[in-house]
Design a protein around this nucleic acid. Structure first.
Length: 521
RNA sequence: UCCCCGAUAGCUCAAUGGUAGAGCGUCCGGCUGUUAACCGGCAGGUUGUAGGUUCGAGUCCUACUCGGGGAGCCA
């Protein structure tokens, strides 16, 4: 875009300049130092004083400090600035200066201010709020810096998901959201009235994708999926986004190779584009830099052994000791802070600060207490893990924490897995499936498998699971007409975002979370 | 479906079974370099709902509602 007036020769300079000025974004302020700029945005916070007034302006691209000094000629401007309230929308014009003391490094000294929309008693104040309060105001909470950062990282992850598959010749095939029957066959489906007929919200597009991959060889689908699981945990949503690639003429290890490259590409892209944002989110980026090939690949058998073995026990014991000593440390800190508050001669603001710290410490304490209480249970679950069961949440955490890079766990017992998974030809008790466990205890982000391509074995499994064969005739057709070895996986977007951004709760990783008992706004 | 924790001012939290408080936010006043600004003041309450125990319940008991964490299940 032309910034130099020389280029404007022959145009009506004043109107063009005005239009250009109105387009200035905070992220481009460095190019306007020494000149004037017009910004449009929202007031983050206002700090008026007797004769000088500061406020922070947010415009969606960054944050910038605005200043008005009182003078004989600017009474109305100064008064308007002094009265600005949180989240009022404004258009401002002023001189741009470099200013080390200001957020973002630049400052605008105002010559004009227009309030576009007033904002009274904005509910989300710069003080701490409870999680329920914030999610009831999700529509406003987006404006908070932390939520803004997360949404930007999410957008990049989604862009990279599409780019990865598009660049490698995968064809996007959209699968239906209204599905006639169970995909994976279970009670965790949302039932919808479809002109008097029952249909279900799709849990996966996989079966449809298998059909499409016989036409295009490499395909993927990407969209929302729905699970009516009554789980209230930090890793569950009832509506979440999943990307599912499906590849013809692929073995289990081919599919795992793709998953490995894919996850590496996501980490690399986010580190390139959002290093600063990740740091601001409190992400230890060194951990993300470890997301490199090769990931660990272990079998379910080995995972079971690991859980029962001395390493798992040692990990949990160490954990218990660390958490117990942290608990003692917290108690001591709380006691110290409370003593300080009681002492005389302490300023009110120091008392407030101490009180706020006590609240934080107590919260950490309460979480820690829960975790400590759970450890013996987790130890028992791990130590007594029996072949044949699925890996529980705590088991996954243990396995992932025993490795410094993501871990593929493959070859689970057949009877705990879905009917379409390919039976291992050398061991009929297991299937050729895999999960990818993210490190640092983030748990399962991918589930995938080779699909059963043999007609007779597939039909047998459908009967074994008690599924109605007539519902799966079209699916069986894929084995009747030129069946090939194939497979794919599904990656949960929100779990991935939570992992990359180091979020404790998956619900912050999606714009409008839908979970048990929460569907507003 | 099961287990644990919680609900007090708009918000975040205090309050041995004995007069319901603080900070923030709002509003008013003050302050020339602020950064969760600061200083002074006003207003703000059927302690989630319904019962019970007690001379007396925010506090103890029971049920329910809502929320949080976990189990199961899963991306």
């Amino acid at each position: 875009m032309p910034r130099s007036p020389r280029i404007l020769k022959g145009l009506r300079r004043s109107s063009i300049l005005r239009r250009m000025a109105a387009k200035t974004e905070i992220r481009d302020l460095s190019g306007h130092v020494g000149g004037s700029a017009t910004l449009t945005g929202w007031v983050v916070k206002n700090r008026p004083s007797g004769k000088i007034s500061f406020f922070e302006l947010r415009d969606g691209t960054g944050v910038c400090q605005c200043v008005v000094e009182k003078s004989e000629s600017n009474d109305s401007l100064f008064e308007a600035a002094r009265r600005l309230s949180q989240e009022a929308s404004v258009e401002v014009t002023g001189a741009v200066t470099r200013e080390e003391r200001a957020v973002g490094g630049y400052e605008v000294r105002l010559t004009a201010l227009t309030v576009v929309g007033a904002s009274q008693e904005y509910p989300i104040t710069p003080k701490p709020h409870g999680i329920d309060f914030l999610f009831k105001r999700r529509h406003l909470w987006f404006r908070a810096q932390r939520q803004w950062l997360i949404m930007r990282v999410r957008a990049t992850i989604i862009d990279q998901i599409r780019r990865f598959f598009n660049d490698r010749g995968y064809i996007l095939v959209d699968t239906p959201i209204f599905a006639p029957a169970a995909g994976e066959g279970s009670q965790t489906l949302f039932k919808v009235d479809y002109f008097g007929e029952p249909v279900y919200l799709a849990q996966t597009g996989q079966l449809y994708l298998e059909a499409a991959c016989m036409a295009h060889r490499k395909v993927y689908c990407f969209g929302p999926t729905f699970r009516a699981e009554k789980s209230k945990t930090r890793r569950h949503l009832t509506e979440f986004w999943m990307v599912e690639p499906e590849i013809a003429y692929a073995s289990l290890s081919d599919v795992i190779d793709v998953a490995e490259d894919f996850v590496c590409s996501l980490a690399e892209r986010v580190l390139t584009d959002h290093r600063q944002e990740l740091i601001e989110l409190g992400r230890d980026v060194a951990q993300l830099e470890r997301i490199r090939k090769p990931f660990y690949r272990i079998r379910y058998d080995e995972a079971a052994e690991l859980l029962r073995g001395p390493k798992a026990k040692a990990l949990l014991e160490k954990d218990l000791a660390a958490k117990t000593s942290r608990l003692a440390e917290l108690d001591q800190k709380v006691a110290e802070l409370e003593d300080r508050q009681k002492q005389g001669g302490v300023k009110q603001w120091e008392k407030d600060k101490a009180a706020a710290e006590v609240i934080d410490l107590r919260e950490e304490r309460s979480e820690l207490t829960d975790q400590i209480a759970n450890i013996p249970h987790h130890m028992k679950l791990a130590a007594e893990f029996e072949w044949g069961g699925d890996l529980g949440g705590s088991d996954e955490t243990i396995i992932s924490r025993l490795h410094d890079r993501p871990v593929f766990v493959s070859h689970y017992p057949k009877h705990v897995k879905a009917f379409y998974m390919r039976e291992a030809r050398d061991n009929a008790k297991v299937v050729e499936n895999f999960d990818l466990l993210a490190p640092e205890g983030f748990g399962e982000v991918i589930g995938g498998s080779a699909r059963e391509e043999d007609y007779d074995r597939l039909l047998h499994r459908i009967h074994e699971e008690g599924l109605p064969q007539e519902d799966y005739e079209w699916y069986l057709d894929l084995r009747r007409f030129g069946t090939v070895p194939h497979g794919g996986f599904g990656l949960g977007v929100e779990r991935t975002v939570a992992w990359i951004c180091n979020l404790k709760h998956i619900r912050e990783a999606i714009p409008y979370p839908r979970m048990m008992g929460r569907f507003y706004p």
